[in-house]
Amino acid sequence: MEYIILITGLALILMGLYGIMYIKNIFRIVIAFALFDTGINIVMVTIGYLRNGMAPILDKMPTEGTTPAIVDPVPQALVLTSIVIGLGVSALMLTYVLKLYEDKKSLDINSFKDLKW
C-alpha cells in the first residue's frame, strides 16, 4: 500500500516539474507548483509510515512502558506546516499573475521579457 502512495507522490512531483518548465500559461504554472507541493507532502507523509501503524490519535492513555502502535507523528506535523506555507505561496503567485495580466493583457509567459536579455 505504501508503495502505491510513494509512486503517486513521486509522479506528482515529476508532473509538477514538467508543468513548471514546459507550460506557457502562467495560471497553469501556478497549478503545476501546487502539484509539485502536493507530491512532496505525500512523499513526506509516506516516509513517516510505520508498518501496521495507526493514525497518531490515541483513544486511551498508553500504559506505562508500552509504546502505542502509531505512525510517526513528526512528518505529519511538518506537512501541516508545509501545506499552509504552500497555500500562502500559491495565493501570492496568483496575485502576481493578476497583476501581470493587468499589465500586458496576456497570460503567455513568453510575452514577459522585461527581465530577459
Binding site: E2, Y3, L6, I7, L10, T46, I47, G48, Y49, L50, R51, P56, L58, M61, P62, T67, P68, I70, D72, P73, V74
Partner: peptide
C-alpha cells in the same frame, strides 16, 4: 523508490512523543 522500505519501529524522537506525548 527502490531503496524505500517502511520502517518497523519509530525513530527516537517519534518514540518519545508516542510514549510521553499523551
Amino acid at each position: 523508490f527502490q531503496s524505500y522500505q517502511s520502517a518497523s519501529e519509530l525513530t527516537t524522537t517519534a518514540k518519545y512523543y508516542a510514549d510521553n506525548g499523551a
